[in-house]
């Protein structure tokens, strides 16, 4: 199964990075990983991914700041940002509503739900 879409996974948890990477590679995506927000932001700039999957609580640069900065790049090229979070509070809903093409996925999630989310975004 070949897929030209590029996915960037940003999480300080090695197991989560690893399982998402395997799942998306099995689906034919080109997957890159980053262990913290700072590294992730650099990869967004350089690799211009189609999908960014990021955790919120991360060292160096947290997920929220990463999303806000990544939102600025979406004027140049659109991409989907999936934020893995523990709880979607009204405050976070309000916050995410201000960002372009950004959605929450609540932990513990299933990998298929992420794929479904991506498929919806790309209109499959």
């Amino acid at each position: 199964m070949e897929n030209n879409k590029r996915v960037l996974v940003i999480d300080d948890e090695v197991h989560i990075r690893r399982v998402i990477e395997l799942k998306f590679k099995n689906q034919g995506y080109h997957v890159t990983t980053a262990t913290n927000g700072e590294e992730g932001l650099d990869l967004i700039k350089t690799q211009k991914p189609d999908v960014v999957i990021t955790d919120i609580m991360m060292p160096k640069l947290d997920g929220k700041t990463l999303c806000e900065r990544a939102n600025e790049f979406k004027k140049e090229w659109p991409f989907l940002t999936i934020v893995m979070t523990c709880r979607i509070s009204p405050t976070e809903q309000e916050w995410i509503g201000k960002l372009e093409d950004t959605v929450f996925i609540e932990k513990p999630f299933s990998l298929s739900s992420i794929l479904k989310c991506i498929d919806q975004y790309f209109g499959k």
């Binding site: 948890e13 989560i16 399982v19 998402i20 799942k23 609580m57 709880r87 932990k107 513990p108 298929s112």
Partner: peptide, 21 residues
């Protein structure tokens, strides 16, 4: 509480995802 939730849900997510695979 936020940290603990994160700490609890992260291994759960890992277990859930690996099990799903």
């Amino acid at each position: 509480v936020t940290n603990i939730t994160h700490e609890l849900l992260t291994p759960l997510t890992t277990i859930n995802s690996y099990n799903e695979m």
